[in-house]
Amino acid sequence: MIEVNWSRTDLIDESQEVVEHQTKNQKEKIADSSGVSIDEFNEGRVKVTKVLVDKNGEEQIGKKEGKYITLSVPTLTVDDNNGFEQLEKAFTKYLDDIHKDIKLTKDSKVLVIGLGNKTITPDAVGPFAIDAMQNEQSENPSDHFVMYAPGVTGQTGFETSDFILALTEKIKPSLVLVIDALATRGSSRLCKTIQITNTGIHPGSGVGNQRTEVSKEVMGVPVTAIGVPTVVDATVIIADAIDSVFRSIAAKIEERGKPSGKLSVTSWTPESNSRVDLSLIKPIFGEWSTWSTNDRLQLFEEAFASHPERLIVTPKEVDVWITKYSILISKCLFNWMEHKIK
């Protein structure tokens, strides 16, 4: 099949090169061959993925040289207080980790930029985080944060990076923090993940609307990007749904005739990470039912290649998710700053 790169993602651990190297031996191989170091582990319910990319790795996976830390709670829901508490704890910890080489004093300024369009909810995590920080600032004043939500180029007519550069030159901060919504290529990652990176960000890149980057090279000071994936391409939803249907049918065929199958009193589907023999449904659906999820996704992307409109999907509770993440990010930034300058 012709390779069509429509599976847009801003998450480092979803880039093809990283996804293809999940075992220990493969991680060691990719580190030796392409300059990418991958470390995955769990801290309670939080899955932590740390990726270090050097100059060789930058050419291999198309991600900038630097450090990427992805925090994910796969079972997180909007009313899961325990999950948000664990994510908040991990986020504060790794904010400190990624900034361990940056010295902040009582006189330091940190410029916090909330990217995105406040009138479009899935894109509003940045501006909402700025609102939450301003509310926190009114109750617990801090001289360290300077906060700004510049809007998007479609609203202002100017490059967002130009606004940020002008502020940086005026304020002369020790650090720029950029908060933005991201795109993911996995529906299970929607609103359940935070990515932190010291490489900066290309506003709008996840949905194909790439603007001038906001980075240390452009701004002249360290730039850290904080992102929450809130949208996914519709073809990913289709591929995930068909994969679930195929796995469910195959699992039920496999269980048929077994005592465990006769004991079931409710509908049952296999867990997403359990092994299912998809060859059992090949007589029903044909050869393509045994393809990998990525191969089926590629098929759908090719089938829709001639369609002028592409759909970007977001959870129906996205307004609640955005509110929760804006408060979480605000709280963690103030706590981290208080700890950092002691």
Rank of each mutant, 00 (worst) to 15 (best):
211 R>D: 01
190 L>F: 15
191 C>V: 13
212 T>W: 02
190 L>G: 10
193 T>K: 03
230 T>M: 06
206 G>L: 01
197 T>F: 10
203 P>K: 00
191 C>E: 05
208 G>S: 05
239 A>K: 02
206 G>Y: 04
192 K>L: 09
204 G>H: 09
224 T>Q: 01
217 E>K: 13
229 P>G: 00
238 I>F: 12
218 V>N: 06
244 S>T: 15
221 V>D: 04
213 E>N: 08
201 I>G: 03
191 C>M: 12
233 D>T: 05
194 I>N: 07
227 G>L: 09
198 N>R: 04
218 V>I: 14
234 A>P: 01
190 L>N: 07
213 E>P: 11
224 T>G: 00
214 V>S: 00
248 S>Y: 10
217 E>I: 04
244 S>G: 03
231 V>L: 07
192 K>E: 11
230 T>K: 03
248 S>I: 12
249 I>S: 10
217 E>R: 07
214 V>I: 15
247 R>I: 13
210 Q>K: 10
189 R>Q: 12
233 D>A: 08
201 I>E: 03
207 V>H: 01
189 R>H: 14
202 H>R: 00
243 D>F: 10
215 S>N: 09
236 V>W: 04
228 V>G: 01
194 I>W: 08
249 I>A: 13
188 S>V: 13
232 V>M: 05
215 S>G: 02
196 I>L: 15
229 P>D: 00
208 G>L: 04
204 G>E: 01
210 Q>C: 03
209 N>R: 07
210 Q>A: 07
215 S>R: 01
245 V>F: 15
234 A>T: 07
237 I>D: 04
243 D>N: 15
240 D>N: 14
247 R>E: 14
220 G>H: 08
246 F>D: 14
220 G>I: 10
217 E>H: 08
243 D>V: 08
199 T>P: 04
191 C>T: 15
246 F>I: 14
216 K>P: 00
188 S>M: 08
224 T>I: 14
221 V>T: 12
223 V>I: 04
247 R>H: 14
248 S>A: 15
213 E>L: 02
230 T>H: 04
237 I>A: 05
236 V>T: 15
206 G>E: 05
189 R>P: 12
201 I>A: 02
223 V>R: 04
243 D>G: 08
225 A>V: 10
192 K>Y: 13
228 V>W: 07
197 T>H: 09
226 I>T: 09
201 I>M: 02
188 S>Y: 15
216 K>D: 06
249 I>Y: 15
220 G>L: 05
204 G>Q: 07
205 S>H: 06
248 S>H: 11
219 M>I: 12
218 V>C: 00
227 G>D: 10
221 V>S: 03
232 V>N: 00
202 H>T: 05
232 V>E: 01
213 E>K: 01
248 S>D: 13
222 P>M: 06
237 I>Y: 12
247 R>A: 11
236 V>A: 11
213 E>D: 15
225 A>C: 08
220 G>S: 04
211 R>W: 12
197 T>W: 08
199 T>R: 02
190 L>S: 07
243 D>S: 14
199 T>Y: 09
224 T>D: 04
224 T>S: 09
207 V>A: 00
220 G>V: 10
223 V>P: 05
